[in-house]
């Protein structure tokens, strides 16, 4: 029982981290608050749902299609947000909030308010230990999330590009002076964000019911983890994801599903109050 709980929480946490990395990279590099992050996740979830349902496409095919679509969507978003007037953080927040309204209603129009889920192809697989359920979906989520997280981690830590990205996160102006093409870094951050959302979407469609208004919750989770870990800190995001997964699963276990949203909201408010510097390192410095 305890083991099962831990396995579920770990899977959830890894998935949360996968959702949060894209948001965090975009925020860190471009200082754009993408409140529509959850809606992008939903969109790619719906894409996976329809590809799977109507064309019977296997996950191996769905994933690249979804990733490429989201890459394209994210790059479009970058073009939109590039021109946002000052103050940048607040205005991108408001504009992407408008985008949330737009996408929510567009999805409502297109997909109706029905709840949808990609049914697992086979029944839950049973591991040798007879008390432990580990469904195929869970294995997929855990594996893919960790693989994607690891890939981004390696990219940031080991490659020259990653160094440039990290420099831009720490101080965009100084990075520009050091000869880094900050515009390219913005594109790269949005591109990576799009690819990650494209990976997460099909997985999301397998674990949760898709509903046009369900995206905000995912965005809030991304925000929570970003504040907790600080922008662009992959390991922190993963640990934060696990903690959040544990807390949420624990709340559900102890109090019931109805209180889960309250738990994440309270965590968000507490983090905003206690770790104001978690959002953007630069803000803490310029604050009087």
């Amino acid at each position: 029982m305890m083991l099962q709980f831990l396995v579920n929480a770990t899977t959830l946490g890894a998935f949360y981290a996968l959702v949060a990395i894209g948001f965090s990279l975009i925020l860190g590099v471009t200082h754009a608050f993408n409140l529509a992050h959850g809606e992008m996740l939903l969109l790619s979830g719906y894409l996976a749902y329809f590809l799977g349902k109507h064309f019977g496409a296997p996950l191996l095919l769905i994933l690249p299609v979804s990733m490429l679509t989201m890459l394209f969507a994210a790059l479009c978003l970058e073009r939109l947000l590039r021109r946002v007037p000052e103050p940048h953080e607040l205005n991108t927040l408001v504009i992407t909030f408008g985008l949330v309204l737009l996408l929510q209603n567009a999805m409502l129009m297109a997909f109706s308010a029905n709840y949808r889920i990609v049914a697992p192809e086979t029944g839950p697989g049973q591991t040798p230990s007879s008390t432990l359920f580990l469904s195929e979906t869970q294995v997929l989520i855990l594996g893919l999330s960790l693989a994607a997280t690891g890939a981004v981690f390696l990219l940031l830590k080991r490659s020259f590009l990653g160094k440039a990205l990290r420099a831009t996160i720490q101080d965009g102006e100084a990075a520009r002076l050091a000869g880094i093409n900050v515009k390219h870094m913005h594109l790269l951050a949005f591109g990576l964000g799009g690819l990650l959302v494209g990976t997460a979407g099909p997985l999301y469609a397998r674990t949760a019911y898709l509903h046009p208004f369900g995206g905000m919750e995912a965005t809030l989770i991304a925000v929570i983890l970003t504040i907790f870990a600080g922008v662009g800190r992959i390991r922190g995001l993963l640990i934060g994801g696990w903690i959040l997964g544990l807390v949420e699963s624990g709340t559900v276990l102890l109090l019931g599903t109805n209180w889960r949203e309250l738990a994440s909201s309270l965590i968000l408010i507490a983090l905003l109050l206690l770790r104001p510097e978690g959002l953007l390192p630069k803000w803490a410095k310029t604050r009087p």
């Binding site: 953080e89 607040l90 927040l93 109805n258 209180w259 309250l262 909201s265 309270l266 905003l272 959002l279």
Partner: peptide
Amino acid sequence: IAFGKLRGAPFALASLASVEIPKVIIDN
């Protein structure tokens, strides 16, 4: 009292999250 120090985007996020408190309590 709670958001006295928050401004700009963090304030907006906190206000967004604060909706859940009365909502979930009333819901339950």
